[in-house]
Amino acid sequence: MATIRPRVKAPKKAAAGEIIEIKTLINHDMESGQRKDKDGNPIPRQIIHKFTAEFNGTEFFSVDLAPAISANPYLSFNAKVDESGEFTFRWFDDDGSVYEDTKSIEVT
């Protein structure tokens, strides 16, 4: 697998109380555990099984992902922002890795 790199699209500015949309992507095979290799041996499951989104240290959104989620999982969701601050996004891999990205927003 290529180097795993999360990508996030979120507005840099918003009005107080505005509901913004956040879009995230991470390149990952999402190996389902259902497939076999060319010798007929099962390929072990390895997926991103959890995603979380925090704002200024408070988790406000998360998703539990099953192997049915496509490779390079895409998630979009919303947040109601009342103050400036920082979002932290985390992707949890079956192999124990945690991938992280952050985005700042200025609320006017």
Partner: peptide, 15 residues
């Protein structure tokens, strides 16, 4: 998908 009031709206997308 797990939401809180801070989500603003209970909506989401995936593939």
């Amino acid at each position: 998908f797990h939401f809180t009031p801070m989500s603003g709206v209970a909506a989401g997308s995936t593939r």
